[in-house]
Computed example of a mutant assay.
Amino acid sequence: MDANQSLRIVAVVNQKGGVGKSTIAIQLAATLSRRCRVLVVDVDPQQSSVWWAGNARAGLPFDFAGRQHPNVLVRLRELHATYGVVLVDTPRMLEDTKPVETVLDAADFAIVPLTPEPLAVEPTIRTITTLIEPRHVRHAVVLNRIDPRIPTQLSTWQALLDFTWGIPRFDTHLRQYKTHADAPVLGQVVTTLRDNRSTAGVIADVTRLGHELSGMLEPAPVGSW
């Protein structure tokens, strides 16, 4: 992804809570900051990203807007000379989907985190079929919290996405590591972690996801979306 390209707004979305939206938004922002200037916008009333950023103090390699009303995204196109990517951390949706609809109306791409648990399936599919697809927003699921100790877990969930549900996904997945759970409390991101035996997997996963997302944010071929 060229830093001179126009602004890309990326929404991290799922109607289900607890699937890792804030973790993915913050960690992706950190790794993408190596390639362009990045802004994170938090529209989630729970303010998980705000709390994380507060714990990091001045240690974040990207700009953070704090909690904002979704309507602010309408004006973000004016920032194209300043930012290459804006990542939007969105709330879970119970009955009121309007804030997320507003975000998706402005988004160029949607990342849909999915954890390998049955209760996450229905909300994830509903998010895609009722909110993302009708808006023709390019999107992909990222499998999150994959347990490396379960040999068939990754292949099973990849097959479900590919063949059972027919949902686009990232080739990259994020494995379950204690470092991810500790990072918000410690205010750490992949660019500030010491690269050692306990952090190498986290750094590698997020870096790969950042590279793959950058490729997906390139202009779509004519006739596709």
Rank of each mutant, 00 (worst) to 15 (best):
T115P: 00
D89H: 06
D89Q: 06
L186V: 07
I203F: 00
E218M: 11
T102A: 14
L174D: 09
V189R: 01
T90E: 10
L131V: 01
G17S: 08
Y177K: 10
Q153Y: 05
T90V: 09
A3R: 15
F64E: 10
Q158V: 14
R34W: 02
T90G: 05
T129K: 02
T192G: 12
L119W: 09
P116R: 04
D162A: 11
V43Q: 03
P148R: 10
L7V: 13
L213A: 08
W225V: 13
L39P: 13
Q158N: 11
G166S: 04
V13M: 05
V189M: 08
P134G: 00
V13D: 03
G187N: 06
D44Q: 08
Q5A: 15
W225C: 10
T164P: 05
Q46P: 10
V222F: 01
T164I: 08
R67D: 00
G66C: 01
L186Q: 12
V12L: 04
T152W: 06
V121N: 09
S224P: 01
D108K: 02
L186S: 05
F64W: 04
I132L: 00
S22Q: 02
R92M: 12
A29Y: 05
A220E: 12
T164Q: 11
L94K: 13
R8G: 06
A25P: 11
E133N: 04
D63F: 09
L104W: 01
T124R: 02
P45L: 02
C36P: 01
L76F: 14
W52A: 06
R208L: 13
